[in-house]
Structure formats: C-alpha cells, structure tokens
Write a protein that binds this DNA or RNA. Structure first.
Lengths: 209, 209
DNA sequence: CAGGTTACGTATTGATTGTTACGTTACCAA
DNA sequence: TTGGTAACGTAACAATCAATACGTAACCTG
C-alpha cells in the first residue's frame, strides 16, 4: 500500500517511516487519539502534512498503524508471559509483574495505549474506540486461552470458569494501567499485582468444589 | 456566581439549569470532556450557546460543574458503603457490589465519569485531566480512610498497609469501569468483584505475621 | 410607570481542525 | 539522455471548534 519495502522508481522517501511511526505512537499513547492533533504529530514526527498523508493515508490509518507498532514493540511481555513454559499460576504472575514494569517505563507514557488511546470518543471516532475495545477484548481472550490450557492440563480445577477469572485478571491489568497514569510507581503496581494474585488460591479452592 | 438561587431582578431564566446540567453530565460521561463538542451539548441541553455560556461561563466550568453533579447524584453507593455501620470487609463488599450495579445502569453510560471523562488529554485540557485524577485519588483515599478506621478498631491486622490495599481496591474498581465500557454485564462485574474479594482473607493472613 | 438588571434569539467571530492542490525535485528503467 | 514515477515543499482548503456582539424582551424594585 505505502510501499514500505523496496521502491520501484520515484523519488525516495526523505525520512524513516518506522521512526516517524514510533514518534506518532508515543504521542497517541500520551494524549489519546482525538486529543492528538496533526500539528502535534507534525512536530513530533518532524514531517510536513503531505509527508504524513503520503506515507500513512490519514490520521485514522496512522493511528491504526501505531496500534500495530505498539503491539509489536511494547506488548512483548504479555506474549512472553502467556507462552512461557511454566505453570499457569506462574505465567499469570509473570504477566502481571510484566505489566507493572511495562506500564511505568521511564521515558514512556504511563499505562497502556489500548486504554489511553480512547475510552470515550466523539461519534465520528467511534470506529477507533471500537478497535481499541477489540484489542482489549483480545487481551482478555488471550488470558482465557492460557487459563484454558492450564485447566485442560489438569493444573486447574475442571470446574473453574476461565472466562470469569480472565475477566478479573484483565480488569486488574486495566486498573493497573489507570493507576500508572495517576502516578503509581513500579513498586506500587507490583504490590497491587501481588494482592491480586492472593485471590488465586482462594478461587482454585472454590472451583474445586 | 451564576445566581442559581433567588434572582434579584432581571429577566428570569427560561430553562431549568439543573436539568440542563444533568443532560450535559450524561453527554460528558458518554463521550469524555474533549470529544464532547458544544454543538452536541447544545442539542442535548436544548439550549443556545449564549444560554449555556451565560449560565455556566464556559465549557470547562460546565464540565467541572458536571463533575460535582455526578458526585452528588451517581456516587452515593460509594459514600453509603464506606459509611455503613458494618464490619470493614462487609463495607468493601458493599462498595464493589455497588460499583458493579452503578457502572451498568440501564440508560446510563457504562463505567465511571471520573475515568471516562479523560484519561488522556491534549495539553490545553490537562487541567481537566488533573482534576479527574484528583477525584480518582480522592476515591482511593476514602477507601484507605475506611480501612484505617477498621484497623484502628482492631478489626484488621495492625501490620496491614491500608494504602496498599486501598490501591488494589481502587484499581479493581477502575478495571471494573473499563470492563463496563467494554460491555460487561452487572453479573460479570459482580463476579469480578467476588474474585477480587477472595484476596481479602489472604491479605489479612499475610499482614498478621 | 420609570429605571435597573438579566436573559433572550440571531448571527457571527477568530482560531484550529484534518486534509489537499500544485508545481518542483529526485530517483529508476530504457 | 529521456520518460515514468513518486515524494518533496509551499500554501491554502472547507469544516468545525469554542466563544461573543448586539439589539430585544421580560422580570423586580422604587
């Protein structure tokens, strides 16, 4: 579409699209989709409007591209945790502790782009809000899938509702994201995660009945 | 300031400011501060721009007024729960279960205005974002205060960190707010709250050492 | 009934929003 | 060297944003 690979003739691009996208992502992460104006993007990316539009079509496409970029560069901790060859409870611990760190990285906006990007939106931007909601639901589904694997392996009680537990864990991570936005430190989030994990044993016991 | 009480001369207001404020609050709740345009407010409130500006100064003041209105009309469940003459654990249960219901009221936007209003904002609206952050922190402080009361009453272990536990509970409620936005039902949120409360006994045991 | 005061309706303001013509420049293939 | 192609820089676009003049209408006090 935008011909990011080898060009087939024509004047070469005078900037690095990957670096520009990275700058845009960080700006969207900090201010959200709608509150990030093209003037701000222009300055942060170091580009003129036609450069942005030529490379990324429009603001909405740029944002969607930024979401993919975010997923590829900032959410690795979650994929790693959920696919780690460790017991289920340990995987979940890795997930929450990874979030505690990822949501409070120095030099990066606090929290998660999938949440900060847009919780509420104008009617015109509801497509964006829906896409972010889809990302959040996918995260929850990934947790549920990992829990389901553990249950099938006999590691978790057969009577356990993985959807219910996944909703709790996803909710905790979303709360951590807001806490990070509000100034919570890495240690604060780790403590929060630790408390959240204290529910684990009790839930296992309950489901075993 | 806007002379909401008895007027001292002059043409009387042709609309009910309380009803107009209520309509504005619901719109802000749904779309957030910045994404709610004056055109939308105008239609929802049934007013002309000068009517709005004469009664509420400007958009920012209107929003701040909406926050107070929200606090007065929609957050009663939290104040009730935290001041109920019941044991601490029961008060927290009332709080979370009240949130489960309040965040999923039919005919109302999902979640909490203090979160939907603005998590991320443009540089111009950061004052609003800061005010919302202050509301969220006040909620957490109110939880911490209730926990502190329980600890002083000898109901909770003396070694318990109420700030830490309050941060967990506030985080859970914030997560519930996002889950509500993403379509979770009242029952979903009740289940989430129930799981969150499962951490209670474990935390008490830990703090008792 | 006159004077003071406040809200009304209509129409419009300047600024900012995202987006795009248009003419030029720089590369590749032939 | 020529033709094709695509990104360049400059400048401006229509639409929407929040906010306001301005003249009129409606109430209370004296």
């Amino acid at each position: 579409m935008e011909n990011f690979g080898k060009s087939r003739g024509g004047r070469p691009r005078a900037f690095d699209p990957e670096a520009a996208l990275d700058a845009a992502m960080h700006l969207f992460w900090e201010h959200g989709y709608e509150a990030t104006s093209l003037a701000m993007l222009r300055e942060a990316m170091g580009l003129t409007p036609p450069q942005i539009y030529n490379a990324f079509t429009d603001k909405e496409t740029l944002f969607r591209r930024a979401l993919v970029h975010y997923h590829e560069t900032e959410v690795g901790f979650a994929l790693d945790a959920l696919s780690a060859p460790v017991p289920t409870e340990e995987a979940i611990r890795l997930l929450l502790m990874g979030a505690a760190q990822a949501y409070t990285r120095p030099g990066k906006p606090g929290g998660c782009l999938f949440i900060s990007g847009a919780l509420a939106a104008s009617p015109q931007a509801q497509g964006i809000a829906d896409e972010l909601k889809a990302y959040r639901r996918a995260s929850e589904a990934a947790i549920a899938a990992r829990l389901g694997k553990g249950r099938e392996a006999g590691e978790l009680p057969a009577g356990l509702s993985v959807e219910r537990l996944a909703k709790y864990l996803a909710g905790v991570m979303q709360g951590m994201s807001i806490q990070a936005r509000d100034g919570a430190s890495t240690e604060d989030l780790r403590a929060l995660a630790e408390t959240a994990l204290a529910a684990w044993a009790a839930e296992m016991r309950k489901a075993a009945d």
